[in-house]
């Protein structure tokens, strides 16, 4: 059931920030509403205190995708459908387009936004692993000013980020990717259609013949929140991509996930399988 709420529709970003500032803790921006409305319906604790919704879905300042500084800026209220369709993202950041195309259903993607996905910060948020390996930075605005932060720092723990009640994510910046990287986004669900992720992986690699010159690795749904694996990446740089080493790397990934996540109800399945599919993925992209 949707509780009694006040609905506000600011005409521009400045007005939106004023409303957030004024209403504070009890206000929440709403864009696609694909997390908030189901959350209301099941009476989720996370949404019980909301009294005011500030609709940011149509603010012109945050609904565009633009090319600048060699990279791409994606507005905070850009939907996954917009991302899937955008030629520049498909060309330069294909793993993000891939991940976006596998989120929910068409109906969900038509409403759900990129920023909403990682601000909600569910462990299984599909956009997070690709954003992490693309070194995405978020722009956060409030009446107090603007700050920029790597996504990895912005995300704190499940369903928690550094976002303050008066703040809003206005943009995500994907910096230019050095030449020679290729990668793959992997998603495992229980079903093919409209699946909630059991495991996601995003891996970018730059090969020099058989040698891994550079690599970026991120996972989702197997760690408390989507995360990079810097130690693993450091360990892989300069190594030859032989099957034996890739297996080692996959085992390391398993160990690190176990360390970060501890044992969960799902560990007996997920932990071995993530190593397995990570190895498969490395075999595919380290050719």
């Amino acid at each position: 059931m949707i509780p009694e709420i006040e609905y506000l529709r600011p005409g521009n970003l400045q007005e939106a920030l004023q409303m957030l500032s004024e209403y504070g803790e009890t206000a929440r921006p709403i864009a696609g509403g694909t997390d908030i409305l189901p959350g209301f319906h099941i009476n989720s604790r996370r949404f019980r205190d909301i009294k005011t919704l500030v609709d940011i879905s149509n603010l012109p300042e945050i609904t565009a995708i633009r090319e600048a500084n060699g990279g791409v800026y994606i507005g905070g209220a850009v939907t996954f459908t917009d991302i899937v369709k955008h030629p520049l993202i498909r060309e330069k950041y294909p793993m993000l387009a891939d991940a976006a195309a596998q989120i929910g259903s068409v109906q969900i993607r038509n409403r759900a936004t990129l920023a909403g996905n990682f601000v909600n910060n569910a462990p299984c948020a599909d956009s997070v692993p690709p954003l992490l390996v693309y070194d995405a930075r978020v722009t956060v605005r409030s009446l107090r000013g603007e700050r920029h932060q790597p996504l990895g720092e912005f995300l704190l723990k499940p369903y928690r980020t550094q976002l303050q009640p008066d703040e809003m994510v206005t943009e995500v910046f994907l910096p230019p990717l050095p030449a020679g990287f290729r990668g793959e986004f992997y998603k495992l669900g229980r079903r093919r259609g409209v699946a909630i992720s059991r495991i996601t992986l995003a891996v970018l690699v730059k090969m020099d013949q058989r040698v891994i010159e550079d690599i970026r690795i991120a996972s989702g749904a197997v760690t408390p929140i989507g995360a990079r694996f810097p130690e693993l990446e450091a360990q892989a740089r300069g190594k030859t991509a032989e099957a034996d080493f890739l297996k080692e790397l996959a085992i390391q990934l398993g160990e690190q996930i176990l360390q970060r996540t501890g044992l969960r109800w799902s560990s007996a399945y997920k932990l071995p399988v993530v190593q397995q599919v990570f190895y498969q993925l490395l075999r595919r992209i380290c050719q």
């Binding site: 949707i2 409305l37 609709d55 879905s57 109906q107 038509n110 409403r111």
Partner: peptide, 12 residues
């Protein structure tokens, strides 16, 4: 665009 009308507030 196709949307779930259960996930759109009428005001939106």
């Amino acid at each position: 665009r196709a949307v779930h009308s259960c996930l759109v507030l009428a005001a939106q």
